[in-house]
Simulated assay, not measured.
Amino acid sequence: MQHSKHLPAYTRLSVRFIGVVALAWLFVLAAAVSPLRAAERSRVEAFLNITGFDVALDSIALSAGSAPGMLGLDDSAFGADWSRIAGQVFDTDVMHEMALDILEVALEEGPLNHAAAFYATDLGQRLVAAENIAHMAEDSVANEAEGRRIISDLVRKGAARLGILRRMNLAVGSSDSSLRALQEIQLRFLLAASAAGIIDMPLSAAELRDLLRGQEREMRRALQRSALAGAAWTYRQFSDGELRTYAEALEQPDMQMVYELLNAVQFEIMANRFEELAMRMAGLQEEHDI
Rank of each mutant, 00 (worst) to 15 (best):
A67S: 14
F47K: 04
Q183W: 04
R180E: 06
D91I: 15
P8R: 14
A130F: 06
V128E: 02
Y235S: 03
D139I: 00
L179Y: 05
A130W: 05
R148G: 00
R149I: 00
V15K: 00
I50R: 13
A115F: 07
T121S: 12
G19S: 14
H6D: 10
A24M: 14
N272C: 13
E97N: 07
F189H: 03
A67H: 14
D58N: 06
N263H: 12
L243T: 10
R217C: 08
R161L: 04
I60K: 15
V258Q: 12
L262Q: 07
A145K: 01
A181Y: 06
A61W: 03
P202M: 06
R12I: 01
E218Q: 05
S83G: 05
G173R: 08
A32W: 07
S239H: 03
A247Q: 08
A99C: 14
G147D: 04
A116I: 06
G241D: 08
R280C: 15
A159K: 04
L57H: 00
D240I: 11
I60F: 14
D200L: 10
V89K: 14
A86N: 05
L71Y: 01
M257Q: 04
R149Q: 02
H135D: 11
V128C: 02
W233A: 00
L179S: 04
R220I: 10
L48N: 11
M70T: 14
V20R: 06
F53S: 10
E218T: 07
A264S: 15
D75I: 09
G214D: 04
A205W: 05
Q186S: 06
L262K: 15
R188H: 15
A231P: 02
N113F: 09
I151L: 12
N169I: 07
S34C: 03
A117C: 15
W82L: 07
L62C: 13
T245Q: 11
A206S: 05
W233P: 00
G241E: 12
D139R: 00
A56G: 05
K157F: 01
R16N: 08
V128T: 11
A30H: 03
H6Y: 13
L71S: 02
T11V: 13
Q224S: 07
E218G: 06
N143F: 00
Y119A: 12
D58F: 09
S140N: 15
D58I: 10
L154G: 03
L211V: 05
A232T: 08
D58S: 07
A77H: 08
H135L: 09
F78M: 09
E138M: 01
P8C: 15
G79W: 12
E144L: 00
S226N: 08
